[in-house]
Design a protein around this nucleic acid. Structure first.
Length: 291
DNA sequence: ACCGCACCCTGAGCGC
DNA sequence: TGCGCTCAGGGTGCGG
């Protein structure tokens, strides 16, 4: 589900209910691969900790805790972080929404997909982490403990440069789009923004990375930054089920050019947008505008 | 080192 | 109404 702009939007909203507060209790579901740290350990380690900061690294959220330990959160495809003040009606698709009883529409009640609940001391809302597909992740790192997940990440996508991309592309036969999705090259881009940036740059997603010129790399990097920044301004993309923690929809889906627009006219030349699988991900592009 | 693929889950939407 | 199929914005790990 969420890429850099959605994670950043989530961070800005969740920060308000986490930072400066002390964790009082933690509730979890049963152990599953969602929990990189066993849930019983989370319930033991987290209470008493104050949240000092909430940072973002690529698509990860990193909460810095009072004793120097850290809590890593990754939303995967369907992860949702939200406050216990949020109304359930805003957490579901419009069809699912309509089938809810009026009572259920007023306030969210933790369900079997709500894998983590953090209760804070004092007044103010709790934090819920709900994830239907369980592709999300929770991990607790002790003070000074290294995280191979974070260490693997390349430069944050907002700081991608043509030079970095060009160097990474050397001798790589994979598609340029696969390079953009590779979190060790740059962190934060996902399927939507890879397609959008490549459309704006006029480069076909399937082109072999080593065949992309230096100046095209500059253009791609420029549009990657531009598309991500603009999406953050609009609150991210709400295409299938992403909604911000406060329940509002993002706005970027209305500005996208090619993603999930198969068959629709290209906004530039009116040629129907083509869809093709590249690196196991559906890719959308214009045959005429993208070389 | 690189590359393609299977896999981890659940739910929505579609054709029949 | 139900069945079977495809698809989904994530990432990891394996074998060739």
């Amino acid at each position: 589900m969420p890429e850099l702009p959605e994670v950043e939007t989530t961070r800005r909203q969740i920060e308000k209910i986490m930072v400066g507060r002390r964790i009082e209790a933690v509730e979890t579901t049963r152990p599953s691969y969602f929990f990189l740290t066993p849930p019983e350990e989370l319930r033991r380690r987290l209470p008493g900790q104050r949240v000092d900061r909430l940072d973002r690294a690529g698509k990860y959220l990193v909460a810095a805790l009072g004793d120097g330990s850290r809590l890593l959160l990754h939303l995967g495809m369907t992860g949702q972080l939200f406050s216990s003040d949020a109304a359930s009606v805003r957490l579901l698709s419009s069809t699912a929404r309509a089938s809810l009883s009026p009572e259920a529409q007023i306030r969210f009640k933790p369900d079997e997909h709500t894998h983590l609940r953090i209760r804070f001391a004092g007044s103010g809302p709790d934090l819920f982490f709900r994830d239907v597909r369980k592709f999300g992740k929770v991990e607790w790192l002790a003070h000074g403990e290294k995280s191979e997940r974070l260490d693997r990440l390349g430069i944050d996508a907002l700081g991608l440069t043509g030079e970095l991309l060009f160097r990474a592309n050397r001798a790589r036969r994979v598609a340029i789009k696969s390079m953009l999705l590779d979190q060790s090259v740059c962190a934060g881009i996902g399927n939507i923004y890879a397609d959008e940036a490549l459309f704006l740059a006029g480069v076909r997603p399937g082109r072999a990375a080593k065949r992309v010129t230096r100046s095209e790399c500059e253009t791609i990097a420029k549009f990657v930054r531009q598309v991500l920044e603009r999406s953050i301004e609009t609150g991210g993309s709400s295409i299938s089920d992403y909604v911000a923690p406060d329940g509002s929809d993002g706005g970027y889906q209305d500005e996208r050019h090619v993603y999930a627009r198969t068959g629709e006219p290209c906004p530039r030349c009116a040629t129907p947008i083509k869809r093709k699988m590249i690196g196991q991900r559906s890719s959308h592009y214009c045959l005429r505008c993208q070389k």
